[in-house]
Amino acid sequence: MTILLKTDLGRAALQPGARLLTPRERTIVLLADGQRSVRELCTTVAGADRTAIMSLVLRGFLQDPEAPSTVQLPDATSSSPKTSPATTPRPARPPPPTAPG
């Protein structure tokens, strides 16, 4: 049984004036409180199905607190060289155009 929670993006989408979700999606996000399963959301919201709910998960509005995070943090013990924006090589600029003359 998968239980879903709102993400920060999901909470932001529920703010007045936010137009990121359809009315049905908004209702699903509103009801995803960490207590209802995907099955309960499907039966509670008219027209909601697993595809619509999983779309909200993939788009970042809902999350499964039991699922591993998809964010990859850099390993502090990594032996790969680090570059900073100051040391990253930049492409050469083309010469400025010359005036006809």
Results as ranks from 00 to 15, higher is better:
residue 95 P to E: 08
residue 21 L to R: 04
residue 24 R to H: 09
residue 101 G to C: 14
residue 33 D to N: 14
residue 58 L to F: 11
residue 43 T to A: 07
residue 52 A to C: 07
residue 10 G to I: 02
residue 56 L to F: 00
residue 63 Q to V: 15
residue 48 A to Y: 01
residue 70 T to P: 05
residue 82 K to M: 08
residue 101 G to W: 15
residue 34 G to C: 06
residue 2 T to P: 11
residue 68 P to C: 11
residue 7 T to E: 06
residue 60 G to P: 02
residue 79 S to A: 15
residue 76 A to H: 12
residue 59 R to F: 03
residue 6 K to E: 05
residue 85 P to E: 06
residue 49 D to R: 05
residue 48 A to N: 00
residue 18 A to T: 05
residue 12 A to Y: 13
residue 59 R to E: 07
residue 53 I to Q: 02
residue 31 L to G: 04
residue 77 T to S: 15
residue 52 A to F: 03
residue 6 K to Y: 00
residue 3 I to A: 12
residue 32 A to R: 00
residue 46 A to Y: 13
residue 17 G to L: 02
residue 39 R to Y: 09
residue 61 F to L: 09
residue 26 R to H: 14
residue 22 T to P: 01
residue 5 L to D: 09
residue 54 M to E: 15
residue 18 A to Q: 11
residue 63 Q to K: 14
residue 26 R to L: 05
residue 12 A to H: 11
residue 56 L to C: 01
residue 77 T to L: 15
residue 96 P to Q: 08
residue 65 P to L: 00
residue 81 P to L: 08
residue 30 L to S: 13
residue 100 P to I: 09
residue 78 S to R: 04
residue 67 A to L: 10
residue 43 T to C: 07
residue 34 G to H: 01
residue 13 A to D: 04
residue 70 T to N: 14
residue 24 R to P: 03
residue 7 T to P: 05
residue 56 L to I: 02
residue 8 D to N: 12
residue 49 D to C: 05
residue 15 Q to S: 12
residue 61 F to R: 01
residue 3 I to M: 05
residue 59 R to T: 01
residue 15 Q to L: 15
residue 51 T to Q: 11
residue 47 G to Q: 02
residue 12 A to C: 03
residue 29 V to S: 00
residue 2 T to L: 12
residue 63 Q to I: 12
residue 17 G to Y: 10
residue 14 L to H: 04
residue 34 G to V: 00
residue 86 A to V: 12
residue 93 R to A: 14
residue 72 Q to W: 14
residue 22 T to I: 07
residue 56 L to V: 00
residue 34 G to W: 02
residue 51 T to F: 06
residue 98 T to D: 09
residue 83 T to L: 14
residue 53 I to F: 01
residue 5 L to H: 14
residue 50 R to F: 07
residue 40 E to V: 06
residue 84 S to C: 10
residue 10 G to M: 04
residue 29 V to Q: 01
residue 14 L to W: 06
residue 18 A to P: 10
residue 33 D to P: 01
residue 85 P to Q: 03
residue 40 E to M: 13
residue 4 L to E: 01
residue 23 P to H: 05
residue 50 R to M: 10
residue 8 D to T: 13
residue 26 R to P: 01
residue 73 L to G: 07
residue 60 G to S: 06
residue 40 E to H: 09
residue 39 R to M: 09
residue 55 S to M: 03
residue 69 S to V: 12
residue 57 V to H: 08
residue 38 V to R: 04
residue 99 A to I: 12
residue 41 L to G: 04
residue 95 P to C: 07
residue 98 T to H: 08
residue 46 A to N: 13
residue 18 A to E: 13
residue 73 L to H: 14
residue 47 G to L: 03
residue 79 S to H: 14
residue 17 G to D: 06
residue 42 C to Y: 00
residue 3 I to C: 07
residue 79 S to I: 10
residue 72 Q to D: 14
residue 35 Q to C: 10
residue 94 P to M: 09
residue 100 P to G: 11
residue 38 V to W: 05
residue 88 T to C: 09
residue 58 L to N: 14
residue 92 A to S: 13
residue 94 P to E: 11
residue 79 S to P: 14
residue 66 E to C: 11
residue 26 R to V: 00
residue 62 L to A: 06
residue 18 A to C: 05
residue 87 T to E: 12
residue 92 A to K: 08
residue 64 D to I: 08
residue 23 P to D: 06
residue 90 R to W: 10
residue 33 D to Y: 04
residue 16 P to S: 02
residue 78 S to P: 04
